[in-house]
Nucleic acid binder design. Structure first.
Lengths: 241, 241
DNA sequence: CAAGATTTGTGCGTATGTATC
DNA sequence: AGATACATACGCACAAATCTT
């Protein structure tokens, strides 16, 4: 067949892995930002000396991490760098074993509480009037929205998101959103609507806002504990059932 | 060309997405655990009515989330469900913009501190003699290992991992490990070895162990703050340079 | 609105490298 | 060492979505 020397790839690594790395470095080296377009598949194939199959498989792994975003018929773009991969990982784990799923949900609630309770002092310290007004509005929305509506769950998410905003820590904000998402996805599967017991939730949110207005970090932390207490109770109740 | 009615796929979703979902539900429905083998590509192709291309791309996205693990020449297995995807996402983001990378690292340090400081009380409460001995050994290893060695950084990781172990919260433990990994990967790129300034680190670890032995949650929290203070200082110094 | 061009999605066949028995 | 099973990689053709003219 081949009369000449076989062009054995000297790489010890998998071609797909090499391609993913080169695409990542391409994005970094060219200072691309989320939404910026990447070269077409054909161009990348030529540039990286890879077949279209290998290139596409590499792109799929990057898409799973939200490092790139592929739009059918349009092109490939730099992704939003969200924590969607974390959400998918945790939701899958939460649904994996029907015995440990309650444990996983409890672990998640503990982490959510850790964030808000542990950052209570700094939240109070950095909160200003505008943020306080936003929190009040989110609470009002939560109360007024029809129970079980999409607007209601969105108001709950916005509230917890707003809590972390004054910290100016993007990682904390994104993790908070990701954990909320996982909770909202997993909880219904276990027979409990996450922002259920609306009265409890609204009261807890109000207590947090009041504590924040009074610049009382201890009261705020206590309100956070009170907010998650009924959630934990419901999980425990589901475990006994 | 086609005399018969076109076999339009009623699905509005992409085939690839449908395949990933069906593989996930396959794992869940069959109660598979990490390490369990999955059907071969050929079998999955037939079972899911998909071509190898689509199936492989679907598997690559699942592999990126550590939901499945592919071993060349051997087969496909259920993944370890680690948070490797989170590590990859955060490391990429940390290296993305040379201006905000210091900010991203600072955000990360803040989260790491939040975990250990926020859980101080519960760590103290649930710690027993055995855990205390493990922590002391990890500290001793950290001190004795040659500076800059792989054993040294591993001792540091083990210490922070052990801290969270008594909580019995797998999510917290895995997140702690993931954040440590990101820190260890990103920090060197910014010109600072993560577990550098060995004296500071060892002293801080010792202070934490002592506080834990004395069941003094406040002292423990203070030691955590003292542990990350020099790290923050170094990041700030790198920002001024 | 229409038609063509561009780009990603899907399918298939074949050859090769790798792990396992 | 050989044989078998399996994943990896390549190339091409066509379908579907999107964009442009």
């Amino acid at each position: 067949m081949r009369t000449e020397i076989k062009p054995i790839r000297p790489d010890r690594t998998l071609l797909r892995q090499a391609v993913t790395d080169r695409i990542k470095t391409y994005i970094i080296d060219n200072r691309l930002k989320p939404g910026d377009p990447l070269p077409t598949e054909a161009e990348l194939c030529e540039a990286l000396n890879a077949s279209r199959s290998s290139l596409r498989e590499a792109i799929k792994t990057l898409a799973a991490l939200d490092i790139v975003e592929v739009r059918h018929g349009s092109g490939t773009f730099v992704g939003r760098l969200s924590l969607s991969a974390l959400v998918e990982s945790l939701t899958f784990r939460g649904l994996l074993s029907p015995e440990d799923d309650l444990r996983a949900l409890l672990d998640l609630v503990e982490v959510r509480q850790l964030f808000e309770e542990g950052m209570a002092a700094q939240i109070i310290e950095r909160l200003d009037g505008e943020h306080l007004a936003d929190l009040e509005q989110a609470t009002a929305e939560l109360e007024q929205c029809p129970p079980g509506s999409a607007a209601q769950v969105e108001a709950d998410r916005k509230f917890h998101q707003l809590l972390m905003q004054p910290l100016g820590n993007q990682l904390i904000s994104q993790l908070t959103g990701a954990f909320w998402d996982v909770h909202a996805i997993v909880a219904p599967y276990l027979g409990m609507s996450s922002p259920a017991e609306d009265a409890d939730t609204v009261a807890a949110h109000r207590a947090m806002v009041e504590a924040a207005r009074g610049r009382d970090a201890d009261a705020f932390a206590a309100a956070v504990v009170a907010h998650y207490a009924p959630v934990r109770r419901r999980i425990a109740a589901a475990g006994r059932a």
